[in-house]
């Protein structure tokens, strides 16, 4: 599936909210038909990364200070002016949000909200946009789409709302879908359905997908590539298969230890929690950012922040002195 030049290539992205460096030098790329998962706890900078790519960091709060965000055919998005960036949003990148209720405008009908990007980017008439919105609703598995298109958001269930948001994101057939925890606010059974929908859409449309989540089970389900973020930096990245099977960073290892596994001889295994919390981004410790919570920390971890160390040629990289020493 993954071939050719990347659809999205992020290089050295840095985003600050005042003195807080929420995203501190993040790089990754994703190709057509490929899914990249960004994993991390709250406050790790994964949502800020997504909003930075979209150019939607609120002006009053913060800004992207460095790096490039290259989108195939559009060049570096950071160099675009407001109008050109507005053209990219919704047309080249479709975004799906965490809370499907608050992400939809309560006073507009579902159909008109889904059709709006088509009217803005493709110049469709109100009627054409509405007809297309009904088709899109059918495509994302909403039953009786013609009626639902006339409903208001509060009349739909959570799962249906998220399907509507997804329909809105894919309306203009974007090259990239950016999904910020799209399953987090949903019931587990609905989560599985929405994940299946994403996989299905990707197969059919061949889009590149950046999927932000804190749930490693989701990663195992859909990711081709994975970026593990901690306190604003990527601590480990690579092919999802490799990272999940053989995590090289103690944080990734800790995250994997937190996932409950049924059967597979692991029934008596106790669930591990990573002690402590993510350090405040306003007052990061010297050295490795994960040091205070790391069971293996040693002297060097306090002195020097480990760089992203690359291993092999397949994009596998990690940020840990320990693994370097062992390698």
């Amino acid at each position: 599936m993954s071939d050719g030049a990347p659809v999205l290539a992020v290089e050295g992205l840095r985003t600050s909210f005042g003195a807080v460096r929420a995203v501190d030098g993040v790089s990754f790329s994703v190709r057509r038909g490929e899914t990249l998962c960004i994993v991390g706890e709250s406050g790790s900078g994964k949502s800020a990364t997504a909003l930075s790519i979209m150019g939607l960091i609120p002006r009053a709060a913060g800004k992207v200070v460095d790096g490039t965000v290259r989108l195939a055919g559009r060049g570096d998005l950071r160099r675009l002016d407001d109008t050109s960036m507005a053209e990219v949003r919704g047309r080249d990148i479709g975004m799906v949000f965490q809370e499907p209720m608050s992400a939809l405008n309560p006073v507009f009908r579902i159909g008109s909200q889904i059709g709006e990007p088509l009217r803005v980017h493709r110049g469709l008439s109100r009627r054409e946009a509405h007809e297309r919105a009904v088709e899109l609703l059918a495509m994302v598995g909403v039953p009786s789409p013609a009626q639902r298109a006339l409903d208001y958001p509060h009349q739909l269930s959570g799962g249906m709302r998220q399907r509507a948001v997804i329909a809105m994101a894919i309306a203009c057939e974007p090259a990239l879908i950016l999904a910020d925890e799209p399953t987090t606010a949903l019931d587990v059974t609905i989560q599985a359905q929405i994940l299946a929908l994403f996989e299905d859409l990707q197969d059919r449309l061949g889009v590149a997908m950046v999927f932000i989540t804190h749930d490693l089970r989701v990663v195992a389900e859909i990711a081709d590539q994975v970026c593990v973020m901690y306190a604003g930096v990527v601590v480990e990245q690579g092919a999802a298969r490799d990272v999940l099977r053989n995590p090289l960073h103690p944080y990734t290892q800790g995250l994997l230890g937190c996932v409950p596994r049924a059967g597979a001889g692991g029934t008596s295994r106790r669930l591990n929690a990573i002690p402590g919390t993510v350090p405040s981004l306003a007052a990061l410790p010297q050295g490795c950012r994960f040091r205070s919570r790391c069971p293996h920390a040693f002297a060097r971890c306090a002195e020097e922040e480990p760089p992203l160390l690359h291993q092999g040629g397949d994009g596998r990289a990690f940020r840990c002195w320990l693994t370097e020493a062992a390698a």
């Binding site: 979209m54 939607l56 407001d82 109008t83 507005a86 053209e87 990219v88 949003r89 919704g90 047309r91 975004m95 949000f97 809370e99 608050s102 992400a103 939809l104 405008n105 309560p106 709006e116 990007p117 803005v120 980017h121 948001v165 809105m168």
Partner: peptide
């Protein structure tokens, strides 16, 4: 400051 405003911008609407 509502989420749906961010959605509207993510759709590509001008401010």
């Amino acid at each position: 400051s509502e989420d749906y405003i961010r959605t509207a911008r993510a759709k590509g609407l001008v401010w």
